[in-house]
């Protein structure tokens, strides 16, 4: 056991970890349970967070590897006044979630995509979400929400 400190959503979070402690377990142990463990085999993307600005699967990185890094999780995505940010609001407006379990990972992946590519095509969004699996198969509205969040007209995309 050693103590490490990771800056999570701009605030230092310290805690004891073993070498084998995964980042997702460190975060959830710190009460940040918005980052979900879906498959725990690095396939589903429910645990996507940003480490130094890059989307990574928090179940596939050890907590010690993120020591000293800036980690962003779903808990830090809302606007400072607590209202939903553009991506979160678009998910609500376009019914981009059903059971909601995959949503934190979807929102974090979407945020990473829009940072790299502010106006992605539908195809580019689908490609980028390859590592985010929705068990409800609600992909159409997730894609639509991300297009809307990037300021694109989605009125022609059928609700499915």
């Amino acid at each position: 056991m050693s103590d490490i400190t990771i800056n999570v959503n701009g605030k230092p979070v310290s805690g004891p970890v073993e070498g084998r402690t995964l980042l997702v377990d460190f975060l959830r142990g710190a009460g940040l349970t918005g980052t979900h463990v879906g498959c725990d085999t690095s396939q589903c993307g429910a645990c996507v967070v940003h480490v130094d600005g890059k989307a990574v699967k928090a179940c596939s990185i050890f907590a010690v590897e993120a020591e000293g890094a800036e980690v962003a999780t779903i808990e830090g995505q809302a606007n400072p006044d607590g209202s939903l940010n553009v991506i979160q609001q678009a998910f609500q407006d376009h019914h981009g979630l059903q059971c909601g379990f995959c949503t934190p990972g979807m929102v974090m992946s979407a945020a990473a995509l829009l940072k790299e590519n502010p106006r992605p095509s539908e195809h580019e969004i689908r490609e980028y979400l390859e590592g985010n699996i929705c068990r409800c198969t609600g992909y159409h509205n997730i894609v639509k929400a991300i297009m809307a969040a990037s300021g694109q007209d989605v009125s022609a995309i059928a609700a499915e």
Partner: peptide, 20 residues
């Protein structure tokens, strides 16, 4: 402390030392 303890209920991996 809930604010600082990692979740360890279900440790899947064998323990190892870690160097970086």
């Amino acid at each position: 402390s809930k604010a600082t303890g990692p979740v360890q209920e279900e440790t899947k991996m064998y323990a190892f030392d870690f160097e970086r």
